[in-house]
């Protein structure tokens, strides 16, 4: 049985066609590798920077239970960052370099984390909307064609559902509370709604990388498709809370069973991406300081490990 010899390249496209995963040591086109590294590292940066807006409220959570839950959620996000940096490393990317690119403002991360968290209700809105939007995207990515990315997504999705529910639970409590508390919840929804819609990326006809990603089965749905799903899933949840989605044109279309809605202000989106959002500079500064201030710990751990190794060697002789 001699299988017809096929080139590495043919083999790669065959695997993609057959819905088989690409694994780290497989041959892959440079464009696929670079697209994957870019997407996974941006995703990793988003998980890490995403801890900052919420970290702002750990010490001010209204009860010990809320504080423990928020801490657990934020700890999960740190883990998500780690899974994703590891996945990027399987492609030959250097983690230090990726982090350096974030710190010098060259690498992108989700624009939503450049908005401030002004009240406790924002922590509810982030869990419900931001993690909700992330879940939409990540559930799709469980089927992405690159094996390590797909496996990271499966782990992440298992953990995400609690994030969204704890957020909604916060808002549910506020909405059943005093008039002021309900207003606080409404204010949070007003501010987070459109930035959440932006999380799915630009409109399909303006999205630069979409075609290739769909063809290579990196993504399975377009930005607009995911955004529509998110709106359809979220609007009834807002109604349940008794909150109003800040969109006068929001309308349910019984025929398509979809909501029509107002697009976010895309000029704001591009402006935030360019670094001009309310918190961009602060986020990067915080990350950079954390990295620099942790350097002595990393160095000390290495020095200790080396000394132990030396001691073990000497002991054995």
């Amino acid at each position: 049985m001699t299988a017809k010899a096929i080139s590495q390249e043919e083999r790669f496209y065959q695997l993609i066609d057959k819905e088989e995963k690409i694994e780290p040591k497989d041959w892959m086109p440079e464009k696929y590798r670079n697209t994957m590294i870019r997407q996974i590292s941006q995703h990793a940066h988003s998980e890490v920077v995403g801890m900052l807006p919420e970290g702002n409220w750990i010490s001010r959570a209204p009860s010990l239970r809320r504080k423990a839950a928020l801490l657990a959620k934020i700890q999960d996000e740190a883990g998500h960052g780690l899974y994703l940096y590891s996945a990027a490393e399987t492609l030959g990317a250097d983690r230090e370099e990726l982090i350096e690119e974030l710190h010098i403002g060259k690498a992108k991360y989700s624009s939503i984390f450049n908005y401030p968290t002004l009240s406790w209700a924002d922590i509810g809105a982030i869990g419900w909307l931001v993690d909700g939007a992330a879940i939409m995207n990540q559930v799709m990515l469980c089927r992405t064609s690159y094996g390590p990315y797909s496996r990271a997504m499966v782990r992440i999705c298992k953990e995400e559902s609690f994030h969204q529910r704890q957020g909604y639970d916060i808002l549910l409590t506020l909405c059943n509370g005093t008039k002021e508390q309900k207003e606080m919840a409404q204010d949070a929804l007003n501010r987070w709604w459109y930035p959440s819609l932006m999380m799915f990326g630009p409109k399909d006809d303006e999205s630069v990388h979409s075609d290739y990603s769909i063809k290579m089965k990196i993504k399975r749905f377009s930005n607009d498709e995911l955004r529509q799903r998110f709106v359809d899933a979220t609007v009834p949840q807002a109604e349940y809370l008794g909150l109003k989605v800040p969109d006068k044109n929001l309308k349910f279309n019984a025929k398509t069973e979809n909501y029509s809605f107002t697009e976010p202000d895309w000029s704001e989106f591009y402006n935030v991406i360019k670094g001009n959002g309310p918190c961009n500079k602060d986020r990067i500064k915080t990350r950079r300081e954390a990295f620099e201030n942790g350097k002595w710990v990393r160095d000390a751990a290495i020095a200790y490990a080396e000394k132990q190794k030396q001691n073990n060697k000497n002991g054995k002789q």
Binding site: E89, A152, K309
Partner: peptide, 17 residues
């Protein structure tokens, strides 16, 4: 999966977390 750690003991502790 994988992770970074300075030695085996730390790798186990980080893996736990």
């Amino acid at each position: 999966g994988s992770l970074r750690a300075s030695d085996a003991q730390m790798a186990i502790e980080n893996a736990r977390d």
